[in-house]
Design a protein around this nucleic acid. Structure first.
Lengths: 180, 180
DNA sequence: TTCAAATAATAGCGAGTCGAAACTATTGCA
DNA sequence: TGCAATAGTTTCGACTCGCTATTATTTGAA
């Protein structure tokens, strides 16, 4: 048993325990992951395709998950006016309340000291980048770390989409993000 | 967004990408997790109950998963002679071959340097221990790290189960393990 | 010794995931 | 204008998951 295999085991086991716990009354782990993503993604990145790309899933599966969440009132959906094919999802209050609930994994992570936390985040992020590179996947990084991000006198702008950005939006995930 | 939440996201996202990839022709991620566990667990720890405890799942679910794996020839099952209620599963050659296949997550982890690897393993293990403690769960540690483990002149013995152990067995997971 | 409680495994239910493939509606480009 | 690409949905079959019985078997206490 190599160290790499042991680490994979640890990683998947932690995630599994977290998933087992993240069941709530009527939201399963996959649905919760979608809610987690929606709270972090900007308004250009909340369609079924983007969620599917982010989660390594398929449009079909995510479409069903979003429909189910919508039916239960955790998200709201709206057809885009500019491109009538796309549907923009938005987390509802009920969804935000659920995401805010604490989980044991968080509790476990909180037991680590500051140096360990920073080191852990760096290492995991590096691993993720490497996997995404192998997959040819998008990085889904933050708006403000993007090549197309522009800031003038506290006003932010996306050059790619030609859109103005509110201050909060610069800290959200964008599906078009291309690290600067 | 706190650092703890970001780390949870990273962890679950890595696991999800790994799961998405770990589909093979006819084995899904949950089934693969069971196979992974069976390759690491000793002969006292391979019943549906133990697998369920380890994976944070339920006996019902695991029972079906094992039946399915058995039907496809990845594991073999045998009724215990001492306690006729228990079923002992055993990984088959076909199962071992599948588990040995490399995954992208492993590739990503391999990109880390030695210090990072060790630090990552330590930190994840510490987090896991903390979560299990909150859950009241069993640690599922290795035989040789157990309170009931005894070694005399290269002969190993489990005091709890009054069983002799082969050298290989001392490096396997035991459901009764109680850290020394 | 006997009999009830505990334990191990399994079965059935309903909602939902998952990948894959088929299908509809739009958009964009040549 | 027309046809390929794209976004989303739907359907299919196998399976997971929590839940609630149900059946063996074992254990422990009267």
């Amino acid at each position: 048993m190599t160290q790499e295999l042991r680490i994979r085991e640890l990683l998947t086991r932690l995630a599994r325990l977290d998933a087992a716990e993240s069941w709530s009354d009527d939201v399963n782990p996959a649905q919760r992951s979608v809610l987690d993503y929606l709270t972090q993604a900007n308004r250009f990145s909340r369609s079924p395709s983007h969620v599917a790309d982010y989660l390594g899933s398929t449009r079909g599966t995510v479409s069903q998950t979003l429909k189910s969440l919508s039916a239960k009132g955790y998200v709201t959906e709206r057809r885009s006016s500019t491109d009538k094919r796309v549907v923009q999802y938005q987390i509802a209050e009920k969804g935000e309340a659920l995401v805010a609930q604490p989980l044991r994994l968080i509790g476990g992570i909180e037991g680590l000291d500051g140096r360990q936390l920073t080191s852990l985040e760096t290492t995991l992020r590096q691993t993720l980048r490497s996997i995404l590179h192998q997959n040819g996947g998008k990085p889904f990084g933050l708006c403000r770390d993007c090549r197309h991000f522009q800031q003038n006198e506290s006003k932010s702008f996306c050059q790619l989409l030609s859109e103005h950005l509110t201050p909060q939006e610069t800290d959200l995930i964008c599906h078009e993000q291309d690290p600067a």
